[in-house]
Design a protein around this nucleic acid. Structure first.
Length: 174
DNA sequence: CCCTGATTCGC
DNA sequence: GCGAATCAGG
């Protein structure tokens, strides 16, 4: 992705708004958070001096001659890249009436409805609830975004809505 | 382990 | 200039 003027402007704006690099990368799309951070530095934008959470105050620039690099050989162990093309379309016709029923059943129970984080499609990670909220055609559309447990695509609340056996559902309705 | 930003350096 | 790899910290 090229850093067009518009993308750079958006980067500046979002960075100024205090969004994290990864979130900015998600909104821009096609770039990693590292790219965003690198660009921020290159633009001489003010870093996050010392915010309460997650900022490195000031590191001692140490450069201990990492390792002799024989030409043509990389002696490094790649930990893990962070790139995920997002699950793609996940909305389907899934018996909307059933969902409505389930919602009614669960909400009438003692389940606490989670507070939505109103995440955009690109901001979803592997551990955020991907339950869609609102009309996909509307700009109000977003995702639950709550913490999903045990690698489930949904949070505890929406998991109950998503995976309800008929028997369970009947029981819940009673 | 999850995340954050910071820095280095090969491209 | 770009950004992955790496580092350092919460």
């Amino acid at each position: 992705m090229n850093w067009t003027d518009e993308r750079v402007e958006k980067l500046k704006r979002l960075w100024a708004e205090g969004l994290s690099a990864s979130q900015i990368a998600a909104q821009l799309g096609g770039v990693s958070r590292n790219a965003v951070i690198g660009k921020v530095h290159r633009l001489n934008l003010p870093g996050r001096a010392k915010s309460g959470g997650g900022t490195a105050p000031a590191r001692t620039p140490k450069r201990p001659a990492p390792a002799p690099r024989p030409s043509g050989f990389a002696a490094r162990i790649p930990t893990r890249a962070n790139a995920r093309p997002a699950g793609g379309a996940m909305l389907k016709e899934e018996g909307q009436t059933d969902v409505v029923e389930a919602v009614r059943a669960v909400t009438s129970s003692n389940v606490v409805i989670p507070i939505s984080r109103r995440l955009g499609l690109t901001e979803l990670t592997e551990r955020t609830c991907k339950w869609p909220i609102g009309d996909p055609m509307s700009d109000e559309f977003h995702f639950c975004g709550c913490e999903s447990l045990d690698s489930s695509p949904y949070c505890s609340y929406h998991a109950k809505l998503a995976y309800q056996p008929v028997s369970e559902r009947r029981k819940a309705e009673r």
